[in-house]
Design a protein around this nucleic acid. Structure first.
Lengths: 210, 210
DNA sequence: ATCAAGTCTGTAACTTGTTCTAGATTAGCG
DNA sequence: CGCTAATCTAGAACAAGTTACAGACTTGAT
């Protein structure tokens, strides 16, 4: 539905052999598993390599840094999530309700593996320019999830800005929760607050207040 | 004006001697200077120690980690900024305009030292629980700046949520700009978009569109 | 002025991300 | 099959954050 679903997270340049695909998968699984145990710090490259049954050099050939690895892990998890969400779309009447519902549902999913969430989100916000393409992919996936929830086919630039702001809020709120500086209730309120922007920027009702 | 201005960023427990205060200052300056040159990576603890004329162990006694150091550096810079902003308050008519203006002014200030901004913001979002108190101080400072711009004396819970969302957007937008994934124009649009929430949550005008 | 407690210095060691290298394996091809 | 290039492995080596420690210096109280 997002136009191109091929190579959504692969470099795609040289098609991987079966064994390589399997290695990649083992690495990603090992990463997620270690992260789920002990968060960002527990994802140690030597351990990932060992758990995946792969030499350190190979790990680095597949993922050029720990940040790349964790961002790829996030891509992977998001992909799952997106699929799941498609199967049971949010039920709210307004777009803003549906988006808030979707995000809170996602949030509850992350709550189940807070350490994994920690590792992925920290990597995402810590990523520097060298990881831009990968981070961008994650961002596009998130945008797709939100637009899906809105049910908007052709968003206006204004709406896209609202979606970006929602994403900003989403990431940042997640971080404050993960680092223990905000409660779940507060995150919920903030998500609902920012989702109001969707009504505000709906094109049908004119610019705003018609 | 924020109720307590003493010990705004000091552990405050044992009052520092003059020489200690000076050491602390040298360290903070060295940190900012190195950061301004090469960003996060250029702030190397050994170099900071040397530049500040202090032993490595001493540096760690003052700031228990690189993240602590950079978050403290951010506190320091924010304090300056807050003072500057107080002298020349924003001129807009609406609270939302004034907040957007203030944030964009801050943004332009950061643009002048993008590497320093990079180091500080990356540290801030990368900080884990052990840095919560310090990060919280930064957050309170930011909140104070925004509330100042709004000119609101007694914000409602709704307004506080809006302010939090603005802060989320601010940090996250800054990151996307610093990592080259968003243009300045886009940041401006997003800031202006999120600032609309302020009008939306103004108590006087009733719920909205009064 | 002197003593005890707390700080600071210089330096080495340890940890974990990252890079490098030499030799073994594998994949694709004639 | 037999060759060549690419890939993989094992392990050493290096970089920067962090910790540890012995000895010198300061501070504050007597």
């Amino acid at each position: 539905m997002t136009a191109d679903n091929r190579a959504d997270h692969r470099p795609a340049s040289p098609p991987l052999t079966e064994r390589q695909e399997a290695r990649r998968r083992r690495i990603l699984n090992a990463s997620a598993q270690l992260a789920a145990r002990g968060g960002f710090d527990a994802v140690q490259m030597r351990e990932v390599a060992e758990a995946a049954g792969v030499a350190l050099g190979t790990l680095y050939r597949y993922f050029p840094s720990k940040i790349h690895l964790l961002v790829a892990t996030m891509q992977d998890q998001l992909q799952h999530l997106h699929t799941t969400l498609r199967k049971r779309p949010p039920a709210g009447a307004d777009p803003s309700e549906r988006v808030a519902e979707t995000l809170m549902r996602t949030f509850r999913a992350l709550q189940r593996e807070p350490q994994l969430a920690d590792a992925m989100v920290r990597a995402l916000t810590f990523a520097d320019r060298s990881v831009s393409p990968e981070v961008d992919t994650v961002s596009r996936l998130t945008t797709a999830i939100i637009l899906d929830a809105m049910g908007t086919e052709h968003p206006t630039p204004e709406q896209l800005s609202a979606v970006r702001v929602i994403e900003h809020t989403w990431h940042s709120a997640l971080i404050t929760w993960l680092s223990g500086r905000a409660s779940i209730a507060q995150v919920k309120i903030d998500i609902e607050t920012v989702c109001r922007l969707i009504d505000l920027t709906a094109p049908e009702t004119g610019d705003r207040r018609a």
